[in-house]
Each structure stands twice: as C-alpha cells, then as structure tokens.
Design a protein around this nucleic acid. Structure first.
Lengths: 148, 148
DNA sequence: GTGAATGCAAACTCTTTGCATGACT
DNA sequence: AGTCATGCAAAGAGTTTGCATTCAC
C-alpha cells in the first residue's frame, strides 16, 4: 500500500515538482507539504494550520490556503468535500492509487476505503459518457461501529 | 424513468409527508417544494430563490434554507456538493431511484448519469465495511463535450 | 537587489440565527 | 387565539484578497 502516513515518497515528489515548476522554497508551503505527507487521510485547512501551530513558527491560515491551491493546481493534492461544507485535502499519489471516504452520519467521523470493483465500474461507465473523465470521488454515508 | 422534470409524484409525496409530519402549509416552503419538483437535476439554494423571484411574491433566502433543511431531515431531498463549496439539493425519490453527477472542470457544468454496474459495486463493497451504509454520492470530473 | 512568499487583517460568499410581523389551523 | 412560518437583517463560518514585510534566489 502506498497510502500510509509518513509518506516520504510523496513528500519528495511534491517538493521536487514545486522546485521544477519554479516555486521558491518558502517556509509555509514547505510545512504544509510536510503536514500533508504526515496525514493518512484528508484534513481541512484549519486542521493543517493547527498542526503547524505547534511548531516553532506560526503559519498563517491564508498561507495554508494559498499552498493548498498551488498543490491542487499541480495535481499534488486532491481536494474533496465529504458533505459538511468545508474542503478537505489529501496527498495525491502520482501513480494514481487512491481511496474513497465513508462518513458517519452521527458523529461525523471520516474513514477511508479502497475497492477494485468500484474502480472497475467507474472506469467502464466513464467510457460511455460524453464527458472525458479524469477524476472521481465517492462518498458513502452511514453509521460507524461506535454509533450503531 | 422517474428522474424527469415536472415530477408530480414527488411533489405530492413531499406535500403529503410535510402535512403528515405536522408542518403547516406556508407559502415559502410550498414554493420551494414546487421548484424542486420542477428541477431535473440539483440546484443551489440561490438558484431556487432566484427561480421563485419571478413569481408574484418573493421568498427570502433564509426561508429557502430553512425549507431545504426540513426537507433534508425528512429525507425528501438529497443534499450534495459537487466540489465548488456550495450545497446543491435535489428531490429524493422514495423508491430509491437516483442518479449521480459529472462536473466539467472547465465550465463547471453539472450533468447527471445513472449506472447499474456502479450501484452494484457500491452495494457489494458496502457489505464488507464496518459502517452501516445507507447513502452514497459519486461525483465524476472531466471535460464536457463543449470544453474538449 | 529583485520578485516571490508570507502573515495579518479586511473583504467576500454561503449559511444560520434572532426577532418582529404575518399566516395557517 | 395560539403558534408556526416567513422575511429581513445581523451574525457565523470558511475562504479569498490586499498590502506591507520578509525571505529565497
């Protein structure tokens, strides 16, 4: 699996891509990349900012949003909404490996899952649409074990 | 198909459910139900309010949100986000028939599609998760015919 | 030294809430 | 008549933008 936390591969890939694209190595964006590399699932901009609060220097929320916007534009992160109206972000792996999300209707907990049959079905149906599909998101909703 | 615009079945069902649940027949909520029955795909609160602007009386945006909140709680509408951060709503048919959405990355156009293989895959994978799944959303992203 | 990156604060958008008025039963 | 429903305006929450300062190259 390559969707583990502490993913040094993605971290290096992201930093390399940023440099290749001509971005300077500022502190804020670098820390956001590091925070995302540490995450094993999606995080909100606020959660990322809060995590960086503990470090020696503070990172402004605006810089977090700006960094995420750049990373999203470069395809390095994936932006998603699980239904609560706040955007979440997670590292996007170059190989295309990815997962989807399950949200608990009661407590709001977000978990992840991956399923080949699902990917297969999406790949197949995408071919018959008149849109040229290059991305997809699946969000399941229900009750988590604790709330059932 | 029962996902056609001008769905009198859903409209009647919604009005009946509201009455059965003890809600009074106010003008604003009634008009929101009517507007949703006319929609063939998801609409934002603002779009619904704008559509009702043309009528003889005006409907406040707050009333639209309040009506949508009630309808969502009663399971009469489905709330979804296609990625732009604004909530969209569409009639939820009691039989469970539903569709999913494709969004154009360039122009933002939202279209709908339905696929049995996809539903099948989701039903199957849902059984092996530790969450009790009762709802799902799929959003595909790509380029629409006009933007390709 | 030059221009990009950052942090703060203000602006913006979407959504919710408070409150007085009006409408349904 | 008694409440619920509505509209307006203000408040909240999340996100974006303006601008002066700092930092990377």
């Amino acid at each position: 699996m390559s969707t583990h936390a502490h993913d040094p591969g993605w971290r290096a890939h992201a930093h390399a891509t940023l440099e290749r694209e001509g971005f300077r190595a500022g502190a804020a964006r670098g820390r956001v990349v590091d925070a995302l590399a540490r995450q094993d699932c999606c995080a909100t901009a606020q959660e990322i900012a809060d995590e960086l609060r503990g470090d020696d220097a503070r990172v402004g929320i605006a810089s977090v949003y700006r960094a995420l916007e750049v990373l999203d534009r470069l395809g390095l992160v994936h932006r998603l909404d699980v239904g609560d109206g706040t955007a979440r972000y997670e590292a996007a792996h170059p190989g295309g490996e990815h997962h989807h999300h399950v949200v608990c209707n009661q407590c709001g907990r977000v978990a992840q899952f991956a399923d080949d049959g699902l990917e297969q079905a999406i790949a197949t149906l995408s071919q018959r649409l008149d849109f040229a599909i290059d991305q997809h998101d699946v969000v399941l909703r229900g009750s988590c074990p604790n709330c059932r």
